[in-house]
Design a protein around this nucleic acid. Structure first.
Lengths: 164, 164
DNA sequence: TTGTGTGCAAAAGTTTTGCAGTTTT
DNA sequence: AAAACTGCAAAACTTTTGCACACAA
């Protein structure tokens, strides 16, 4: 998994499991055992992950859920507003959306690290631009790509060595 | 293809083909016939496209280039700074980068339209945030998702009909 | 002539789906 | 009991790669 720097969680009244149950109930769908396992596992640690890592993680911890169910449930959780989907590479990555402040990302193109940050200006900008074009924004993704501080340091070191 | 709203092109001295040749020459690589066909076809019209559409377009116009070569050349053109890769869905979309001002996108989640816009604040914000985290930005992607004006109008109409 | 590139077909990688059997309400 | 869900295997998609032949400098 790529390293990730975290923000402080928000206070929420419902647990993710409750929130998921509500979403499913409204649509006449069911909070089954595999779905409970998934929602709890996912919200147990705060990190970015993809479908494959999730399957592997679960398998390791003995609570096996099939790949199909993982994919189906991830989609549900995105629709339910519990998760957000990030498309930084060919495979989709996911992160907590529920109980976590809205934020954006810096993506290190060298080591793959994902660093989160919060900035209020972006949301204002998004509304402003939407108005200008008669577009109704419901979300946004802002990803800054470049090199993270660790890689910059490492590169500095390498440069010095090169000079010897 | 998804509709797209365009900005005015920039003035550039080299043609995309020239620019591509330069890039390839530096690396001891060659501007072959299929690569010329691709670079010219792509810069002939300004629109967002994906690998599949490109293959189909070319086939239709009689200038057939194999799928492998299309994929390989797209990667080269991105590296050469001619194209930018967008990951809005599972398949990568591409747009002109060379000879076209830097800009960002609104993506309509209903009809898939891509609307381009230019806003200077975003770049400033990106530098500011980079500084704050010791991150060296080299690029960014800012995508506002929501509903475009056309879909909002259509929805308005549908709502009225629903009330009858 | 010596790489480098192309096309094909096959593989690899990610995600979706049909279906038979199972679980949930 | 009815409806929804799961796991499996197979399929669907997108993208990459090995290889024999072709081409460009």
């Amino acid at each position: 998994m790529t390293p990730s720097q975290d923000l402080a969680p928000l206070q929420v009244t419902d647990s993710p499991e409750e929130k998921f149950r509500e979403y499913l109930e409204i649509r006449g769908e069911k909070l089954t055992e595999p779905r409970r396992v998934l929602v709890n596992h996912i919200f147990n640690t705060h990190k970015h992950f993809d479908a494959d890592e999730l399957v592997a993680d679960l398998r390791e911890s003995g609570r096996r859920v099939s790949r199909s169910t993982v994919y189906r449930t991830l989609r549900l959780m995105v629709d339910a507003g519990l998760l957000r989907e990030l498309r930084l590479t060919n495979r989709s990555a996911y992160e907590h959306s529920y109980g976590y402040p809205s934020h954006d990302h810096m993506h290190c193109t060298q080591c793959g690290a994902i660093v989160e940050f919060r900035n209020e200006e972006i949301r204002k900008l998004r509304e402003l631009i939407g108005q200008e074009f008669g577009f109704r924004p419901d979300n946004h993704r802002f990803v800054i790509t470049g090199q993270c501080s660790d890689c910059l340091k490492a590169r500095g070191r390498r440069r010095k060595l090169d000079q010897i």
